[in-house]
């Protein structure tokens, strides 16, 4: 049920930002810390340290946030009504996964206006894997009337490390969901601010120009020499910070997060290089492995921090 007290322009089925606010209100009410997006370029909400790193170690954790996500290869110069190189994911992580996680998820759909007596919501097998993060989990893609609106995953492994306890991760594709509840066929037609007439701002008003510019950049002009160099630099910086962060007796780590930032950086640079088509099939595999090695080392370092479960000395 949509909160009946909301004015029309704030309703999640009328406004893109209203949808985000409704999800924030829902998950804040369930005890999540509502975070802001991570301030780096990432390919998915999972990369946010609030998911990747916090999924590791014994400490309980509940968080919700929006994460702008970049997939350079998915750019279509603003011409495809469904594909974007920059889009929003709404990410929820609950550790340990509660027994009623599916019910919570369904209640969140109701909160944004999806009537479960009217719409066919289905949990369809979809196993999730991120080779670059050395992570995998089992779960579903959640269908609403045949459209995939969310990913639902029980993390089994992150950064090559077994998750115990297991985190439940929900990822909502915000644009898709908004298109569905607003009844819009083209992402650029989404009502962003919920206003009508002169005051109305659409998704296209906000992002269409960026989609055109970044598609051009990602496919045609991104400076590959610079990117190759950046990859190398990020990789070596991560190794340096990891090395410097270990205590003398190797029992504690004091710099896992700055090292992980460089791992994120390397991953995004790799995505850009991939979009530019300068990475061959065999090289591709080796780049992925290199990022995974960084992610694994960062995960191991995180476990040796206080937040990762190693008590302060």
């Amino acid at each position: 049920m949509i909160d009946p007290a909301l004015p029309p322009h704030m309703r999640p089925d009328r406004s893109f930002q209203g949808l985000i606010l409704a999800l924030h209100a829902f998950w804040a009410d369930k005890g999540c810390v509502v975070l802001q997006p991570y301030d780096m370029e990432v390919g998915a909400g999972t990369f946010h340290p609030a998911t990747t790193l916090r999924a590791l170690g014994p400490k309980h954790w509940k968080a919700a946030y929006v994460q702008p996500s970049r997939r350079p290869k998915d750019g279509r110069y603003g011409e495809n009504p469904n594909r974007l190189q920059h889009y929003y994911q709404y990410q929820v992580i609950l550790k340990p996964s509660p027994a009623d996680l599916q019910d919570l998820y369904l209640a969140s759909l109701e909160a944004i206006g999806i009537d479960l007596k009217l719409h066919d919501v289905r949990f369809v097998e979809d196993d999730w894997e991120s080779p670059t993060l050395g992570a995998w989990g089992l779960g579903w893609e959640c269908w609403c009337d045949g459209m995939e609106v969310s990913q639902f995953t029980y993390f089994q492994q992150v950064a090559g490390i077994e998750c115990a306890p297991v985190s439940g991760e929900l990822t909502y594709g915000l644009e898709r969901l908004a298109m569905y509840v607003q009844g819009v066929e083209n992402v650029y037609d989404l009502n962003f601010n919920g206003r009508e007439g002169d005051e109305k701002v659409t998704y296209g008003d906000v992002f269409l120009q960026a989609e055109k510019e970044y598609s051009r950049h990602n496919f045609e002009h991104a400076d590959t020499a610079m990117l190759l160099e950046q990859f190398r630099m990020a990789e070596s910086a991560a190794a340096k910070y990891l090395e410097a962060g270990w205590s003398d007796d190797k029992s504690r780590h004091l710099m896992a997060q700055p090292a992980y930032d460089q791992c994120i950086k390397a991953s995004h640079v790799f995505n850009l290089l991939d979009a530019r088509g300068v990475i061959s099939v065999t090289e591709r595999q080796s780049y992925i492995l290199r990022v995974r090695e960084l992610a694994k080392a960062c995960g191991a370092a995180w476990l040796a921090t206080e937040a990762g479960g190693t008590p302060a000395a």
Partner: peptide, 12 residues
């Protein structure tokens, strides 16, 4: 898979 804080394995 495992879930929550348990160690049992089941399909979901």
């Amino acid at each position: 898979m495992r879930w929550g804080s348990g160690s049992l394995r089941w399909v979901r």
